[in-house]
Amino acid sequence: MIRIEELTRRYGDSTVVDHVSMQVERGTITVVVGTSGSGKSTLLRMINRLVEPTSGRVSIDGRDTSTESAAQLRRRIGYVIQGHGLFPHRSVAENIATVPRLLRWDEARIAARVAELLRIFQLDPAAYAGKYPHQLSGGQQQRVGVARALAASPAVLLMDEPFGALDPIIRAKAQDDLLELQRRLGTTILLVTHDMDEAFRLGDRVAVMNQGRLLQYDRPARLLTDPADDFVARMTGSADRALKLLALRSAAELAAPGPVEELRLASSASLRDALAELVWRGAAAATVVDAGGAVLGRISVDAILAAGCHA
């Protein structure tokens, strides 16, 4: 768990981060979203002390981060940045081995860990371990960047616009992979982005920042239904908020007993996707099935519309 208390950073007269307090629960993904200059990156960088706070405290699992050296602290926190920042003169394996080397693991353990991570990130160790970053595609570079950050199994992973340099299709895949990875490893992730859709897609909780202040910190659905102020409402976008809300819930939630329909929907589909599919096919209802093909129940357009209604 990351506990941030009254964290403030000033540069001269300007306050970049202004008395921000929040708690990131262990094993969740928290997304900090804001426009550029909102102080979100500075907030993130104060957690691994790339920026020293002017005042306030950060503690990770109860331990104040100012009690150890910045280098020691950073070796137990994963850090992923936009444009990956891979070392161009080191191979993929050497890049991933960076933190284990700093921690003086023995070579056999490092080699085993590197191979394990490459496999987790769907990169064949035999083919990719010896390659240099410039020989990889953008998506592969990004994955190696995340693998490098996770090499020493940090409990906390900080990500600063990690998908910012990727094109939309690869970005969607990278986001799915991150969700899957987080479920598998249980890492506590704090991610910074300017993209509200990304925040909704990834975040168990979303923090909205503007001009250094934390405006709202809540579950994504609450940002839509109860925005703290106009700025949050504008950030989340009010025109399609009903659809965004539906996108946050899965079809499985509304599956109810009923007759079997011709159209079938995967239980992992969001209500938004379910609605789109029903409208497209001209069907009034569909049967929801899980990944194994077992019937969970029936979902109707009416039920989805009712779920999205906030009047």
Partner: peptide
Amino acid sequence: PPAVLEAADGMGM
């Protein structure tokens, strides 16, 4: 590249 240096710092070098 600044991103490379930032990564080096962020890794705890």
